[in-house]
Structures are given as structure tokens and as C-alpha cells.
């Protein structure tokens, strides 16, 4: 062994320590507050539920019931459909905003960026309640409609599917805008200039150069918004009517009304597995990480 070898070993050890220092706290945090609780949910999902009590007795009944009862598939599909609709609205709404901030807003970029981040400082409960005030029978929207003479009676917006969708798009829109902004911002300006030098007009430049290069951001944004929408609990609860319960609301009722944690756990685990499979296929198809940097 030469001195070089020892030095290399020292460097390697230092690197390892550095790595541990970097990822250690985050890993520990996730371990204690995510992996352990997830493990408890998984373990409980195989327990029995007898006479209102959780009995640590192995059973597959909870999982069988998830697939036996059409109700859960229905709610699951409904949640997926809400996810797709919200993505379909948030993408065309969010893309131009991201494009504007990345391309046009040279001087005000920081202010606009801040405006995007500010909603995160307010609790989602407050933001969702704000829609209740805006859309309520005696809310601002109805007041304006009535003052303008467009309607005589207040129009009911709240407690309906549109209200839920409006709330979800609003709450999750920044998650669409930020990744798209990031991938637009990373593009080299020369590419667009080159396209235009070669005779492409602005529309063609956008369609052939800018948009394809921003696809990784679009894919990430769609994924984030979709996942968060599908698993949302609060918005359908506050803004929804009698028919807008989503999968999280059903899971909540198992945990807090029947105390059937085993079945609630089985629903959660099934939902999680479906989401992971979906995510794996999606990222394989779209190559989420591969393209993101280029």
C-alpha cells in the first residue's frame, strides 16, 4: 500500500462522512415520521377488527373487502377522474404564467416569483375557506352578479363539483407552475434565437423548440398536481356537496368513525400501491429525471 492509497482511503472516508452529514438528518426524519408510521399502517392493515376493537390477528379480509366491494373502486376512479380534470385545467392555466415569468418578466421576476410562493405561507384551510366566502350565496361573486343586474337570486356555486375543482386548481396551481418555470428558465436563450434566425416564427419556435424542451417540467408539474389532487381530503370536505367524497374522505371515515384502522389501513396501502405503480409507469414513459436537466 502506498501513501497514495492511504490518502485515497482518507478522502473516500471523508466523502462518506460528508454524504452521511448531508442525507442523515433527512433520512432520519423520513424514517421516524414516514417509514415507521407507514409500517404501522401496513402492519395494522393485516389485523382483524372484532366488535369495534382492533385485534392483532393476521387476516387478508381487509384487502379482499377493498376489491370485493364495488364502492371502493368507484370512489377510487372518481378520485382519479378529479385528478385528471384538475391537471387538464391547471396545465393550460399554469403554463403561460410560468412562461411569462421565465421569459418576459425580466425586472419583476422576483416579485412575480414571490407572488407564486406567498400562498404557501397561508394554510390550505384558510385558502379553501376564502373560496367559501367568495362563492357563497352572500359572497363577492354573487354580490357582483346581482349588482350588475345579471341575476336576481344568488347562484349556488358552493357544495358542488365545480366548487371542488376550482378549489383544487387554486390550491395546487403553484405545483404546476414551478417545475415548468424551472425547465423554461434552464433553457438556453440561444436555442430560440437560432430557431428564429433560421426562419421560424415565434409560434413555430414555441411549438418546435420551447415547448418540447419544457416537457420534463410539464411532466413533473402534471404528476405533482395529479398526485396531490387524488389524495386531497380538505377541499372536497369544505367545498363539496353530498356527492363529492374522495378516497381520502372514505379512509378518514374508517379511521375516525368506525375505528376500523385495519380496513382504513388496507384502503391506504392499496391506494399507495396503485399510486406507486402509476408513478413508475408514468416516469418510465416520460423519463421524469432523465430529461429534466436538458
Amino acid at each position: 500500500m502506498s501513501a497514495d492509497g492511504t490518502a485515497a482511503a482518507t478522502v473516500a472516508r471523508r466523502e462518506r462522512l460528508k454524504l452521511a452529514a448531508h442525507i442523515g438528518p433527512g433520512t432520519l426524519w423520513l424514517l421516524v415520521f414516514f417509514v415507521v408510521p407507514a409500517f404501522i399502517v401496513l402492519r395494522t392493515s393485516f389485523y382483524s377488527f372484532v366488535d369495534g376493537q382492533i385485534v392483532p390477528q393476521f387476516t387478508l379480509e381487509n384487502y379482499l373487502r377493498v376489491f370485493r366491494e364495488p364502492l371502493y373502486a368507484e370512489v377510487f376512479v372518481k378520485s382519479l377522474a378529479y385528478g385528471l380534470i384538475v391537471v387538464a385545467i391547471a396545465l393550460p392555466v399554469g403554463y403561460p404564467v410560468a412562461h411569462f415569468i421565465a421569459r418576459k418578466a425580466r425586472r419583476n421576476r422576483e416579485i412575480l416569483f414571490l407572488a407564486l410562493i406567498i400562498p404557501f405561507w397561508t394554510s390550505i384551510v384558510v385558502r379553501t375557506y376564502a373560496w367559501k366566502i367568495l362563492l357563497g350565496n352572500s359572497g363577492l361573486v354573487n354580490y357582483l352578479l346581482q349588482s350588475a343586474g345579471i341575476t336576481d337570486e344568488p347562484i349556488r356555486f358552493l357544495f358542488s363539483l365545480p366548487a371542488v375543482l376550482i378549489g383544487l386548481v387554486h390550491v395546487f396551481l403553484p405545483y404546476m407552475i414551478l417545475p415548468i418555470y424551472a425547465s423554461l428558465e434552464k433553457q438556453e436563450a440561444e436555442l430560440e434565437q437560432a430557431a428564429q434566425d433560421l426562419g421560424a416564427n415565434r409560434f413555430r419556435t414555441f411549438v418546435r423548440i420551447t415547448f418540447p424542451l419544457s416537457l420534463p417540467g410539464v411532466a413533473t408539474g402534471c404528476m405533482l398536481v395529479f398526485i396531490m389532487t387524488v389524495s386531497s381530503y380538505l377541499t372536497p370536505d369544505i367545498l363539496g356537496g353530498p356527492s363529492q367524497a374522495m378516497i381520502s374522505n372514505v379512509i378518514q371515515s374508517e379511521y375516525f368513525e368506525t375505528y376500523n384502522w385495519p380496513f382504513g389501513g388496507a384502503l391506504s396501502v392499496t391506494f399507495l400501491v396503485f399510486s406507486l405503480v402509476f408513478f413508475a409507469i408514468y416516469s418510465r414513459l416520460i423519463k421524469l429525471d432523465g430529461g429534466a436537466a436538458h
Partner: peptide, 18 residues
């Protein structure tokens, strides 16, 4: 009585709400 039936009730209630 409720404890032995709540599971069935909750499933029914979720069906009504779905």
C-alpha cells in the same frame, strides 16, 4: 350494538355518499 354494526353502517353511509 353500535360497535358491532358500525362497520356495516359506515360502508352503507359511504355507498350513499359515493
Amino acid at each position: 350494538y353500535q360497535a358491532t354494526h358500525i362497520d356495516e353502517w359506515n360502508q352503507m353511509a359511504n355507498r350513499v355518499k359515493a
